[in-house]
């Protein structure tokens, strides 16, 4: 397929790089950088720290001491200044030297920025030039030391336009970065002790969850029937084993969601009850 992608810009793949190795090992992965625009790009690389906020957004951390699971100091790249050719691509090898005592997951950010052209902005008044930058999260996981664990802190379900909105606050309580796939559903309890009837369902993710961080996931469930006897379920899967999952149930509220702060703190009377699986 001829793609408009070929007519524009720069491509960096993947948009997040995961490296896995044993304590004491050096592990590496590759970033593919290509100029799909027919011109060279002068690119420089920098490594920094980051975390993810509750919305899953990447937020940089300027002081490494504030990021106890930083692997910024372990990471090396095989080229920090290079020219991305007009045609073809450049592979950048990102390697991490894992300390012998490391456990779980660690992370840092590799940022690619174009070097500012020697262009004069002279003139009257003010001009603001912004240099574009592409930031790629690098997650290093130490094999044999992982303890993945995820908890649902709260789930709320609120009647919305054409259905129900379900919100879950999720905390990574283990030492390992995981990809979370979330499934939300509306289920009507059986009156005769049989299986509950699923009325609507949707999925979200996968979402990257870092140890020690919280994030929010939201699902919109389209359903225009009666909500009598109906509950909202949130189900999270964060690993290949059935045990790598957790679930919560929430009653459906009629009012709009309350402020985020109280939802996270679990002060709502309709906070969900996590279900052990």
């Amino acid at each position: 397929m001829a793609s408009p992608l070929a007519a524009l810009g720069l491509l960096v793949s993947p948009t997040q790089l995961g490296l896995v190795g044993k304590p004491g090992q050096i592990v590496s992965g590759t970033l593919h950088v290509s100029s799909s625009k027919s011109e060279e790009n002068h690119i420089s690389l920098a490594i920094s720290d980051f975390t993810r906020n509750e919305d899953g957004q990447v937020v940089e951390i300027l002081d490494s001491k504030l990021q106890p699971r930083s692997c910024k100091g372990w990471i090396d790249v095989d080229r920090s200044d290079f020219v991305s050719p007009a045609v073809g691509s450049v592979d950048v090898t990102v390697s991490a030297r894992i300390p012998a005592d490391a456990t779980g997951s660690y992370w840092a950010l590799v940022a690619l920025a174009s070097q500012p052209p020697a262009r004069d902005l002279r003139g009257q008044g003010v001009a603001i030039r912004l240099i574009p930058r592409v930031a790629i999260p690098i997650v290093v996981t130490v094999e044999g030391t992982t303890k993945p664990a995820v908890a649902i802190i709260e789930t709320r379900a609120v009647r919305a336009d054409k259905g129900v909105d379900v919100y879950s606050t999720i905390e990574n309580t283990g030492n390992t970065a995981v990809l979370i796939s979330a499934a939300f559903s509306l289920e009507r309890r059986s009156t005769g002790g049989g299986e509950a009837e699923e009325l609507a369902g949707t999925t979200v993710g996968p979402l990257t969850s870092l140890p020690g961080t919280r994030m929010k996931a939201k699902g919109h469930l389209e359903y225009d029937g009666s909500l009598a006897g109906v509950q909202a379920h949130a189900y999270l899967r964060y690993g290949p084993d059935a045990a790598d999952s957790t679930e919560a149930v929430a009653v459906i509220e009629d009012r709009p969601p309350v402020r985020q702060d109280s939802a996270v703190n679990g002060t709502s009377p309709s906070a969900a009850h996590p279900v052990k699986r």
Partner: peptide, 22 residues
């Protein structure tokens, strides 16, 4: 007040899987 001058900064653009099914 916007002091006169030519300013320079960096802007990141990123894409990630959405945390919402909307």
């Amino acid at each position: 007040v916007l002091p006169a001058g030519d300013y320079s900064g960096q802007l990141s653009l990123s894409i990630r899987p959405a945390a919402s099914s909307g």
